[in-house]
């Protein structure tokens, strides 16, 4: 059976900031966006809609690849790199 994506992310080091480095303007998701690309382009599977239909992102497990940002034509994401000592730290890659 394939390894769960959460288990894969569990192999990486994430140093957690107190503030999210990705903020979603859900208004844009619900009015302008037509493809919900973030739901299936993210290689860490971090995006999901909550039970109220709002787009959410589990930014803590972000690999900082920026794919969601590049694929989000409606520009619903305010996306920056985590600052200071935070974010993913690869030990091999």
């Amino acid at each position: 059976m394939p390894m769960k994506i959460d288990a894969k992310l569990g192999l990486d080091v994430f140093k957690l900031d107190k503030e999210p480095h990705i903020v979603i303007d859900t208004e844009v998701c619900n009015t302008v966006c037509t493809d919900d690309a973030c739901l299936y382009v993210c290689p860490a599977d971090l995006y999901e809609r909550d039970d109220q239909g709002r787009m959410t992102v589990n930014w803590e497990g972000c690999l900082e690849c920026g794919t969601c940002l590049i694929c989000c034509d409606p520009r619903a994401l305010s996306w920056k790199y985590p600052g200071g000592p935070y974010g993913v730290q690869y030990r091999m890659s």
């Binding site: 894969k8 192999l11 990486d12 690999l63 690849c65 920026g66 794919t67 690869y90 091999m92 890659s93």
Partner: peptide
């Protein structure tokens, strides 16, 4: 044994 998972644009 999978040891790391990474992604980049």
């Amino acid at each position: 044994t999978v040891a790391e998972y990474s992604a980049h644009a």
